[in-house]
Write a protein that binds this DNA or RNA. Sequence first.
DNA 1: ACGAGCTTGTGACTTGAATCACAAAGTCCG
DNA 2: CGGACTTTGTGATTCAAGTCACAAGCTCGT
Lengths: 233, 233
Amino acid sequence: MRNRPIPEATVARLPVYLQALLSLAEDRRQMTVSSEELAQMAGVNAAKVRKDLSYLGSYGTRGVGYDVEYLLYQITRELGLTQDLPAAIIGLGNLGRALASFKGFAERGFKIAALFDVDDSVVGTDVGGITVRHLDDLKDIVTEEGVVIGIIATPPTPAQLVAERLADAGIKSILNFAPAVVKVPPDVTVRKVDLSIELQILSFYQQRNQAIATAREASRRLGTPDSSPQTRR
Amino acid sequence: MRNRPIPEATVARLPVYLQALLSLAEDRRQMTVSSEELAQMAGVNAAKVRKDLSYLGSYGTRGVGYDVEYLLYQITRELGLTQDLPAAIIGLGNLGRALASFKGFAERGFKIAALFDVDDSVVGTDVGGITVRHLDDLKDIVTEEGVVIGIIATPPTPAQLVAERLADAGIKSILNFAPAVVKVPPDVTVRKVDLSIELQILSFYQQRNQAIATAREASRRLGTPDSSPQTRR
DNA sequence: ACGAGCTTGTGACTTGAATCACAAAGTCCG
DNA sequence: CGGACTTTGTGATTCAAGTCACAAGCTCGT
Ligand SMILES: NC(=O)c1ccc[n+]([C@@H]2O[C@H](COP(=O)([O-])OP(=O)(O)OC[C@H]3O[C@@H](n4cnc5c(N)ncnc54)[C@H](O)[C@@H]3O)[C@@H](O)[C@H]2O)c1
Ligand SMILES: NC(=O)c1ccc[n+]([C@@H]2O[C@H](COP(=O)([O-])OP(=O)(O)OC[C@H]3O[C@@H](n4cnc5c(N)ncnc54)[C@H](O)[C@@H]3O)[C@@H](O)[C@H]2O)c1
């Protein structure tokens, strides 16, 4: 299993295990954890946990489980979180400000190293202890501060432009909060977080379940035997 | 194809198509759109677009494409966005406030109908034109306002409790911003948005690509022929 | 030192999603 | 009206993820 490329789906779950392990490490009572326990905490099934962890190597002990500290270190290392990665936020509106003043990053392997905007009433001001700079200074400051992650929190229209500026500044990892699809060179990774999309997905399942409920209700009233429960998820 | 259950992956893309169609509908020049164009805009491939849309029915015309307005309506209907769904935000800190004062919801099928917190210095204040209520009044107000979606923006510790209160109030759809896994009854759908997880995933690919780059660099200097490019994503 | 009892690690299998590739169905133009 | 040209809709295929199930390996008590 070792040395095989780690599946994307596994990579996406490692941070969840990390979170669970951190909370276990905090109360020092439990030195070791079983795949079953970890699965409970992460909300997945135990076989998946074991398979996921096996991609990192054989870090468990049969009959015992996984050493919490050791596993914690291995996942941290695999995710590249052994030192704090410097990130920049572009767009200091409602969302950008919330992100900039959020204290939770430091404990999770990141630090906000620079802030950018284009609005003259924002540039030069202080947000969460950091001075907002003009977007035009992006490349210089990114180089200077060693920023490796760009967080786009501008309105959707300028998002593409900002992404290009980030790519031009040598940044390879972008997190995009603007509801817009941005195109970047193939060596740049973009992940998108779109709140409206999440809500719309919820809306779909909401209405579907409701439709099923009313259909069942109707057939019950008609005395028709209920065929399929169709719970799913 | 019709009447088959819509795959989860497709549901997750429908909002992206919706967004693209909305921007097409705005400038009224283009009455119809091909799967190829839509694919470009959504950042996916054309075959996937066609297959996704085919789950909703045969709404295209061969040789022409899809009627923008008609498709727009069909997706809106499928997602259950024909009327604004009332949502509630719980936890009015940095993030909760940004969400509450965000104007983009209305245009995307949602409206913020209620706000909740437990902090006495927050309860009773006005945020984005809505008075913050105490969490204890959740059930009453949810019923009264017909809220169907709950958005958790509290710290991680109270997230589980809040989720239970929401479920108890009859809410079936929860969007959770707190970095915590919440357990709910099977008829409730939870989606999680976790910023730190997204950053950690970026970190993984960042460091992996870097590792590949330095390995290639090393082998180049040694004159070893470079075997596999291994771009992926 | 041995057997009962856990728990891991992983091949084999199942399920679901993505991609391919092409016939079917339409448009457009001479 | 017919044939060149588009573009859809969808079986067939490939690829990735999830689940199952069990032998291998460890601990601990006796
Ligand atoms: N606020 C929310 O809760 C929320 C929720 C979901 C999505 N979003 C999305 O996040 C993004 C930001 O939302 P917001 O509410 O903070 O918006 P906002 O309008 O409050 O802030 C946008 C900020 O970006 C700056 N900006 C504009 N163009 C820029 C450019 N070219 N370069 C750099 N900065 C630029 C503006 O000066 C402003 O400060 C939007 O795309 C929005 O759709 C926000
Ligand atoms: N701020 C960000 O940019 C950001 C980014 C990523 C994730 N998050 C997550 O979002 C959540 C909120 O972040 P924040 O920065 O707004 O935190 P915050 O501390 O500023 O606000 C939390 C709010 O929740 C309220 N609260 C606490 N317990 C509650 C309860 N039981 N019921 C109702 N309300 C309660 C508090 O009174 C406070 O108003 C956190 O879980 C955080 O990890 C925030």
